[in-house]
Write a protein that binds this DNA or RNA. Structure first.
Lengths: 234, 234
DNA sequence: TCAAATTTTCTTGTCGACAAATAAAATACA
DNA sequence: TGTATTTTATTTGTCGACAAGAAAATTTGA
């Protein structure tokens, strides 16, 4: 389990209990520390975090609302499965949100947005140079989430972040197969997107985001196909 | 408050408590029985529904996840406000989801979907004939939600339903101003959309959904403008 | 030996109670 | 009279406990 759990022994402030459990579980689910299908035992969690079951249940309700966890009535709650059969719906929504949020960012971004976006891009470039696949996944997510924020449509941002998180989970499965050639292309594509947003060029932003999304979708599909071949050869 | 609350005296089955409160609160919020800003007293609710605070809190957490309720730490939870200043983000997302879901429905619908969609349209037409504005809002929502389901992308369906619900709240404010000429146009537009979905004509479905969305957005904007003028004359 | 029925164990959903945090009321002070 | 401070009251967040359901284990019967 996550290392943070051991630090939980320290006394927590009142009203932060739910958020505390929520964050731990969420991280563990997205990092696949808790892989899909893992049962979540309330009692066990309660004594490990040295708190009552009440805040844990509320955190679980919240996670269930985001689809990260599935609650079977009167039976255990488990980490939601990844629906590999219908991944195309995920890719479709992902691509659309990439486009829409980047468009809006080009339209509504402020200078402060640009600064923040560039900071995330720096983090991403750093992760790529360090060949740290996990950090790449996380920083890429933050980069695009920040662009979405600059677009200032909370409905899109909400769905997009959910999709990015789900993507984090999917990529995490195949992260071992990463090579270092493709990511460099991503860095350049990010730079192009930033340039379009800075120039307030909506159409260019749309085109670039679309291409970028296709790129990512293709990579994931390649990783899945490669993985499938490996499983067959074994 | 909702009439259903009185029926709550009857004994409920174990495991349905949360859903019970959730449904009641959700309906009351969307029907503006609980207008934006209304405080929600856990204790009061608990004794009114004759149950403990635990399931009520869990229902509130769920509602907070959907943005229908806002929880101020250590203070009361209130019904979320409608952000009239940023309604354009709502309209934008709404229009996009209308288009995307209708497109996908034209692409993936089954015959069973068509039957179900037609049934919803019948309900809608009935509500229009009866000049029942509230029923119109509800049946219109169900009609489009069913189309979204036929599109088979749960990410889109999820966001779309949220938007439709929020729209239900907004329309509810102005429902008194409805006239009976516009709705008939809606019925015809619905029929056209159904025809496009049946013919699997993706482009036509997109075009019609787009026009339909614009129509609805324009109507809401008109209602708001009219309301504003009335407020000034008063 | 295997299947059906029964018992046991375990987990969840709900409850009532308590303490911290905040809001409201009351008091003191200028 | 109006403002600052203390006191009271209300409401939330958390806790431990209990009972209903479901799964696992056991027994019974063929």
């Amino acid at each position: 389990m996550s290392d943070k759990t051991t630090a939980s022994q320290a006394e927590r402030k009142r009203g932060e209990g739910v958020k505390f459990v929520y964050d731990i579980l969420r991280d563990d689910i997205l990092d696949l520390v808790l892989p899909p299908g893992s049962p979540i035992d309330e009692v066990q969690l309660a004594e490990r975090l040295s708190m009552s079951r009440t805040p844990i249940r509320e955190a679980l309700v919240r996670l269930a609302g985001e689809g990260l966890v599935t609650t079977l009535p009167n039976r255990s709650t488990v980490v939601s499965n990844i629906d590999f059969l219908n991944l195309h719906t995920f890719f479709d929504a992902m691509t659309l949100m990439y486009r829409v949020t980047t468009r809006l960012a080009a339209q509504f971004r402020t200078d402060a947005d640009l600064v923040a976006i560039r900071a995330r891009q720096a983090d991403f470039a750093h992760a790529v140079e360090a060949h740290d696949a996990l950090a790449m996944i996380a920083t890429n997510r933050d980069f695009h989430a920040r662009i979405a924020e600059a677009g200032r449509n909370p409905y899109y941002t909400g769905l997009f972040c959910r999709l990015l998180d789900e993507g984090r989970r999917i990529l995490r499965i195949y992260y071992s197969s990463f090579d270092d050639r493709l990511p460099r292309r991503y860095v350049i594509e990010h730079e192009d997107i930033i340039a379009a947003i800075e120039a307030r060029d909506v159409e260019a932003a749309d085109r670039l985001a679309s291409a970028h999304a296709d790129q990512i979708v293709r990579q994931i599909q390649d990783l899945i196909a490669r993985d499938r071949r490996q499983q067959i050869t074994l």
